[in-house]
Amino acid sequence: GQVHVGDTTYHFPNPEEARKFAEKAAKENNLQVTQHGNTFKVE
């Protein structure tokens, strides 16, 4: 799974890890998570 936060892309071998990371980043920054397959975008 990939997580895009601003201009930075994080790669995770496990989509579940990617999702947890995205949700945590979104919560900390008052942002939203959008999911496209195994790619998550925090914005």
Results as ranks from 00 to 15, higher is better:
T39H: 13
K24G: 06
H36S: 11
Q35E: 06
Q2C: 15
F12A: 01
E43D: 10
A25H: 14
F21P: 00
V5E: 02
N14L: 04
F21W: 09
D7H: 13
E43M: 11
H36R: 09
F40N: 03
E17I: 07
V42K: 02
K27L: 12
G37Y: 05
T8E: 11
K20T: 09
T8R: 15
Y10R: 03
F12C: 10
H36F: 13
L31H: 07
N29W: 14
T8H: 13
E28Q: 11
P13K: 12
H36M: 12
N30L: 06
Q32K: 14
A18C: 05
G6Q: 05
F12V: 01
F21R: 00
N29R: 13
N38L: 05
V42R: 00
V33D: 01
A26G: 05
A22L: 02
H4E: 12
G1W: 15
K24W: 14
H36A: 09
Q2M: 14
N30A: 07
K41I: 15
D7S: 13
T39Y: 10
A25F: 15
V5P: 00
A22V: 02
R19Y: 06
T8Q: 14
T34H: 10
V42S: 03
T34Y: 12
N38I: 05
E23T: 08
H4G: 04
V42Y: 02
N14F: 05
K27E: 10
T8Y: 13
K24T: 09
T9K: 08
G37M: 05
Q2V: 15
L31M: 15
R19A: 06
N14G: 07
F40H: 02
N38T: 09
A18F: 02
K20E: 10
E16N: 07
E16M: 08
A18W: 01
V5T: 04
K20G: 05
F21T: 00
E17D: 11
R19Q: 07
D7G: 14
V42P: 03
A25Q: 11
G37S: 03
V42H: 03
V3R: 01
A18S: 01
P13V: 10
G37P: 01
K20M: 12
N29A: 13
A26K: 02
P15V: 15
Q35C: 06
H4A: 06
N38P: 05
E43Q: 11
T34K: 09
R19M: 06
H11T: 10
E16S: 07
E43Y: 13
N30H: 10
K20Y: 08
E16W: 10
D7P: 09
T8M: 14
F40P: 02
Q35A: 08
H4S: 09
T9S: 06
N30M: 08
K27N: 08
F12K: 01
Y10M: 04
Q32V: 14
L31R: 05
L31Y: 08
T39R: 07
P15A: 14
H36Q: 11
E17W: 06
E17P: 00
K20A: 14
A26I: 02
H4I: 15
F40S: 02
N30I: 04
Q32M: 13
Q32P: 06
K20I: 13
E28C: 13
H36V: 13
A22G: 01
N29M: 15
H4R: 12
L31D: 04
A25R: 10
G6P: 02
A25D: 03
T34W: 09
K20P: 01
T39V: 14
A26Y: 02
T8P: 01
E28P: 06
T9A: 06
G6R: 07
F21G: 00
E17L: 11
A18I: 00
E28N: 08
E28M: 11
T39L: 12
A25E: 08
E43V: 12
K41R: 14
N14T: 14
H11Q: 08
G6F: 13
H11E: 07
K24M: 12
N38A: 06
E43T: 11
K20W: 09
F12Y: 03
P13S: 13
H11V: 10
Q35D: 03
K41N: 10
P15K: 12
K24S: 09
V5C: 13
K27Q: 11
G1L: 05
H4P: 01
K20Q: 12
E16K: 05
V33R: 00
P13E: 13
N14Q: 04
E23P: 00
F40A: 03
N30K: 09
V3H: 01
E17S: 09
A25G: 02
F12G: 01
E16F: 09
V3D: 00
V42D: 02
V33S: 03
H36N: 12
A25K: 13
Q2N: 07
N38C: 07
Q35S: 06
V3W: 02
G1A: 15
N29T: 08
F40E: 02
K27P: 00
Q32D: 06
F21I: 00
A26F: 02
F12Q: 02
N38W: 06
K27M: 12
R19S: 04
Q35L: 06
R19F: 07
D7R: 13
V33M: 07
H11F: 14
A22M: 01
V42L: 12
V42N: 03
H36E: 12
H11R: 08
K41L: 14
K27S: 10
E17R: 04
Q2I: 15
F21H: 02
F12D: 00
D7C: 15
Q35G: 05
G1T: 09
K20R: 13
A25M: 15
Q2A: 10
H4W: 14
P15C: 15
E16R: 06
V5D: 04
T8K: 15
A22S: 03
G6D: 05
R19K: 09
D7W: 11
Y10P: 00
E43A: 12
Q35K: 08
G37K: 05
V33F: 10
K20S: 09
A22R: 01
H36C: 15
K20V: 12
N38M: 05
G6S: 05
E23G: 04
E28K: 11
V42M: 04
N29I: 06
K24A: 12
V5G: 02
F21Q: 00
